[in-house]
Amino acid sequence: MFLGTHYPKLDDKGRLTLPAKFREPLTGGLMITKGQDHCLYVFPRDEFEQMARKVAEAPFTNESVRAYQRYLFAGTDEQSQDSQGRISIASELRRYAGLSKDCVVIGAINRLEIWNAERWESYLDENEENYAQAREEVLPGVF
């Protein structure tokens, strides 16, 4: 399970060092794809493959399904960590997420999310008030 917030730096070659606590679950390979809200999602390869099978089962005769499949799979890059726990982020993915030197990596249960640091802070500021409402929608009657 991926949890927590970390602040790694993107180097000049487009490499990001993953937090040490996240490296072991990603040793079997990882998939980086465009996420929602202009962040990147990083899935362990096996988790991504399970999701891909579900997406593949949707009827491709549906226009929304085709659009989603194209967007998801065309924007995905398979990676593996180097010996120092770094991953290379493709330039198109860096552009999409607006990544520069300062990044934020958050754990989101079954995936990591990589954010531009300024964009992450803006997201938190904009959504702080909605947190209680979202909690009630996701976990009604809990807490």
Score class of each variant (00 low, 15 high):
residue 49 E to S: 01
residue 32 I to K: 00
residue 10 L to H: 00
residue 120 W to E: 04
residue 1 M to A: 09
residue 45 R to S: 10
residue 92 E to A: 14
residue 109 I to G: 00
residue 51 M to H: 04
residue 82 D to P: 01
residue 88 S to H: 13
residue 50 Q to K: 15
residue 131 Y to D: 00
residue 97 A to C: 04
residue 74 A to E: 10
residue 105 V to M: 09
residue 87 I to A: 02
residue 15 R to P: 00
residue 3 L to G: 01
residue 18 L to F: 05
residue 114 I to V: 14
residue 104 V to E: 08
residue 72 L to K: 02
residue 55 V to W: 01
residue 53 R to H: 12
residue 98 G to A: 09
residue 64 S to R: 14
residue 122 S to M: 06
residue 106 I to T: 14
residue 2 F to L: 06
residue 65 V to W: 07
residue 109 I to E: 08
residue 131 Y to T: 12
residue 126 E to W: 05
residue 99 L to K: 06
residue 37 D to P: 08
residue 86 R to Q: 13
residue 41 Y to F: 15
residue 130 N to A: 14
residue 48 F to G: 06
residue 137 E to V: 03
residue 73 F to D: 08
residue 40 L to M: 06
residue 50 Q to L: 12
residue 128 E to H: 02
residue 139 L to Q: 08
residue 77 D to C: 15
residue 114 I to C: 03
residue 133 Q to N: 13
residue 39 C to Y: 04
residue 66 R to M: 06
residue 32 I to T: 02
residue 76 T to R: 05
residue 82 D to K: 01
residue 141 G to P: 02
residue 4 G to H: 04
residue 4 G to Q: 04
residue 60 F to T: 11
residue 96 Y to D: 08
residue 87 I to Q: 05
residue 120 W to Q: 05
residue 79 Q to N: 11
residue 34 K to S: 09
residue 109 I to P: 00
residue 97 A to E: 01
residue 88 S to T: 15
residue 83 S to N: 15
residue 62 N to K: 11
residue 91 S to G: 07
residue 41 Y to N: 13
residue 33 T to E: 07
residue 18 L to E: 05
